[in-house]
Design a protein around this nucleic acid. Structure first.
Lengths: 312, 312
DNA sequence: CACTCATTTTCGTCCTAGACAAACGGTTGA
DNA sequence: TCAACCGTTTGTCTAGGACGAAAATGAGTG
């Protein structure tokens, strides 16, 4: 058991780096063996000590990996080039109109003005309506915040504040709709274990509630077996699962296939989130939702084909 | 890379068990070496295959460990005795009055009646008021739900539903209060990395908001260095950190000490949550909040001693 | 009896290094 | 254009050894 990274000295042990970067201890040791990076110093007991620059580089690498790049291609690059790479990908984004709003939000984050931030978000919800807000504003805003963090313009705690305030605003807006206890379809929302990001669920809920859908969210990280049980117990018409871009493709596909096999065919399974864009083939018996707008399409399609059955 | 636990066969690989139980791979292997339990079978590649009974026992052990028991004492016990132990601890609970409500909630969870559940919780908030609800109802309810899960009366997804609905109810109730943008004190709320449970933050927020406090929540898992930066950036009067019972004592104390050292003395640091009950000595320059009721006490005490300073 | 201090035991995390399967990327052939 | 193949890349599993921090225990003192 080694000392935690003391805040003042900015030295990280391997556990701290795992926390900070999301790269497992095994991976960190393996990279050191294979690529010679990172190459941390050792403390008197022979344990790895990572410096802040190494951690920053690892963070940048992880972020690019989550965007689809392979480690071997980028692990040798210095921090500048990693940032440049990230910028290049970021510039693919559209819509100069929304960008002024993005800049405003980021400015509010940088000045730590929580009330103004919440006000700005809430006001935009009012102006655009909940669905349009989620579809047209939140997605690019998430991207912009992530990029700003990557470029060092936002600190971690500022990103946390953004996520938290966004959740508050979405939750409030969702609550403003009357609860559809008899709505159809009943949609069960959750994520697989190891999937930390629950904000996607909230965004989907925000899209579906105005459509009169009866949403039941289990929050993130439900074990697969329990997802199955929950879908049956709640007599869900649709099981909606969210996957962030970082989620291992194979784990997702295996879990989904196993659920498809075990659930009755009248239960639709929707798989959404950034990960689904990495899926090449179509998956039998499953609806892929690569972007949020497709949620609405999928709902309309479901409703067009649905045949009411007694008791389900 | 091994196959994920297939749902039908109910076989778990070591990663799946880590997910399911919260025990690290290292610990699982070490227990096997030291105590001979668990002793999973092997697949054709020599990788561990855990069965559902072993996983259930490991889960029970983990839960008792989180309650403060040591692994050596309980690792040899069969599942029955583990459950009996948990019952014994549960029966220490007070207040037969609240227990009928607890039973009602658990029944609603078991019948998967999400609307009725939310209604029951919301109604109790109305009747008791937010603060009393949190102090007198939520804590024993959490305990009861945890125990019911332990005894196998609740499934994981039913516990998830409970957590989610409770969050919705608390968030809604908090939003009902006018936002205190100039309130004093400003309280910054968050948890350390590796601390998954954010519900405690919401409960504290629910206690403080009615008192006119200006709460700024960063959500869970803020790196310590960023906690420091955030406290300074937001000019927080109080930094409130929540720790679940499972959180490693040493990590918490080191992090807290380091924060105390680096933050100006006029910033109070509050440490709350189940973990704080394991702390024996008093920690210099820090307020320990072993139970939720102490939050209010601590707030009154802070206000009594506070001297307004220009700009802070 | 409460309390402190020192010693022993318990327990988790880190270490090294080897093996192997899954996923990726490119190429070939239909 | 799509499917099948194949080398390369990459992450996770395996094993046991070592060590320090925390908890439990025992001894001594007020």
């Amino acid at each position: 058991m080694s000392a935690v990274a003391s805040v003042g000295t900015s030295v990280f042990n391997i556990s701290a780096v795992e926390r900070e970067t999301g790269l497992s201890k095994d991976v960190l040791r393996m990279w050191e063996r294979r690529y010679g990076f990172p190459s941390p110093g050792r403390d008197p007991h022979g344990e790895r000590q990572y410096g802040p620059t190494e951690v920053a580089r690892l963070r940048a690498i992880k972020r690019l990996m989550d965007a689809g790049l392979r480690p071997g291609k980028i692990i040798g690059l210095p921090l500048d080039e990693l940032k440049a790479l990230s910028d290049a990908r970021a510039s693919e984004r559209p819509d100069a109109l929304a960008q002024s709003f993005e800049r405003e939000i980021i400015h509010l984050l940088q000045t730590h003005d929580a009330p103004a931030l919440q006000h700005a978000l809430a006001q935009l919800v009012m102006r655009q309506g909940l669905q349009k807000f989620v579809l047209e504003s939140v997605t690019p805003l998430n991207q912009a915040v992530g990029d700003a963090w990557m470029r060092g313009e936002l600190q971690v705690f500022e990103e946390h504040l953004y996520t938290e305030q966004l959740q508050v605003v979405l939750r409030t807006a969702i609550n403003a709709f009357p609860r559809q206890t008899t709505g159809v379809p009943r949609v069960l929302l959750t994520t697989f274990p190891n999937e930390q990001h629950g904000i996607g669920l909230l965004m989907v809920e925000a899209l579906l509630c105005p459509e009169g859908v009866n949403c039941i969210s289990l929050g993130p990280q439900t074990p697969i077996e329990d997802v199955r049980r929950a879908a049956i117990a709640h007599k869900a018409h649709i099981l909606a699962l969210s996957f962030s871009g970082a989620f291992p493709l194979r784990l997702a596909l295996e879990g989904l296939a196993s659920l498809r096999q075990q659930l009755p065919p009248q239960v639709s399974i929707w798989a959404g989130g950034d990960m689904t864009r990495r899926i090449r083939k179509t998956v039998p018996g499953m609806v892929l939702i690569p972007d949020l707008a497709s949620t609405i399409t999928a709902l309309r399609s479901w409703r067009a084909h649905w045949i009411p059955r007694p008791g389900y």
